[in-house]
């Protein structure tokens, strides 16, 4: 295992602070993720998985606690710094693929480079083609998202997440919207990329079978880490839904 990539200490997240409907979703979380891990984040609905993922993904700030991502203390960064760190360190795969409908598959994959550099360089285009080839979509790179099946869209999203060679990919129920065959295919793809390139993955999933194929399972219950350990140790995966 590599160096510490993510260090969360005493993370709290409170919504509607100071108002009658104030609600605390995360209650003092401690979590470490090392470079090269392939971890599953499981837990019942409302346990705070998405909130944790948003905090990890720098899409939301924690209300209290310390978060160090790739050696940078997140609370010390302003919005632009946060955005830069997110761009350079993280990749996202969402449940509803979230491709940009106005752009082709290839343009969606090169978009992170366009955001960063303003233009798509020939090198960036070559990398996008390589990635699309790796996810088995070399033949479909000119199609728009509407012309792709759900599984294909999710594979494009994975290629996009990998475009800028992130250290960590955060996947929020990447197979939640897919049939079993596509699910297996998409999950297998992430696994393969992890094994070949060494990119770290944190996958939120409801599917115990998929969680069982990860190296580590982190279970969240009511905003606290209930269980955290290697897959082999954590008994039968069927207990978590």
């Amino acid at each position: 295992m590599g160096a510490e990539l993510v260090q969360l200490s005493g993370i709290h997240k409170v919504y509607n602070a100071g108002q009658p409907n104030e609600i605390e979703v995360l209650h003092g979380l401690d979590l470490r993720i090392r470079q090269g891990e392939f971890a599953a984040l499981i837990g019942p609905s409302g346990s705070g998985k998405s909130t944790l993922l948003n905090v990890l993904g720098l899409l939301e700030r924690a209300s209290a606690g310390e978060y160090v991502l790739a050696g940078q203390t997140v609370s010390a960064l302003d919005d632009d710094g946060l955005t830069r760190l997110r761009r350079d360190t993280l990749g996202f795969v969402f449940q509803f693929h979230h491709l940009l409908p106005a752009f082709s598959a290839e343009e969606n994959v090169t978009m992170p480079a366009r955001v960063r550099d303003g233009v798509v360089t020939p090198q960036a285009r070559a990398r996008a083609r390589e990635l699309l080839d790796a996810v088995g979509l070399a033949h479909a790179m000119d199609r728009t998202p509407a012309q792709l099946s759900g599984g294909m869209q999710q594979r494009v999203a994975i290629a996009r997440a990998l475009m800028l060679q992130p250290a960590l990919v955060l996947a929020d129920e990447p197979t939640g919207n897919l049939d079993t065959a596509s699910s297996n295919e998409v999950f297998g793809l992430m696994r393969r990329i992890h094994d070949e390139v060494g990119t770290s993955f944190l996958v939120v999933t409801h599917d115990p079978r998929l969680a069982g194929r990860c190296d580590r399972i982190i279970e969240l219950v009511d905003g606290r880490i209930d269980r955290d350990g290697p897959t082999s140790v954590s008994a039968s995966p069927s207990s978590s839904t």
Binding site: G57, L59, D79, D80, T83, R84, R86, R87, D88, F92, F94, H98, L99, L100, P101, A102, M111, P112, V115, R116, R160, L164
Partner: peptide, 16 residues
């Protein structure tokens, strides 16, 4: 809205 969110997640600054 959603596309703006995606662009932001991909690292687009508010100013962009």
């Amino acid at each position: 809205q959603r596309e703006i969110g995606i662009l932001r997640a991909m690292g687009a600054q508010r100013s962009q």
